[in-house]
Amino acid sequence: MSTFIDLYNYWIFIFLMMVGFYIVISQGNLVKKIIGLNIFQTAVFLLYISMGKVKGGTAPIIMAGDVSYSNPLPHVLILTAIVVGVATTALAMALIIRIRKAYGTIEEQDIHEQDASL
């Protein structure tokens, strides 16, 4: 039982990651795949941030007095990772627009059919 209390946070993150991952690999719609990818990544960010949390801690902005702070390093890493994530999303969206212009569809299935019929 104590394991559950200690770890349930992580398990929810893992659940979210897997929902995102599942969307990426099972769906045929290009836009939805990218949304799945974002959900996957965001859940990983949650995992990072949660490992930085300290019981009774506060945001790592130094104040007067004896305060305990949460770990700032995961925050820094995830700031960078979020930016990387949005950069990937922007690129993917531009690609999808181009694919739509070239194929007239954003469904993987239809694209395969068009390529196969060549």
């Binding site: 991952f21 990426v24 690999i25 290009l30 795949k33 990218i34 990818l37 996957f40 990544q41 990937t88 690129l91 993917a92 690609l95 999808i96 181009r98 694919i99 070239a102 194929y103 694209i111 390529d115």
Partner: peptide
């Protein structure tokens, strides 16, 4: 070739995973 676009997309998804 327009397949360059889908190739790039496929690489993007797998690479990001």
């Amino acid at each position: 070739d327009r397949r360059a676009l889908t190739a790039s997309y496929q690489y993007l998804v797998m690479g990001t995973i």
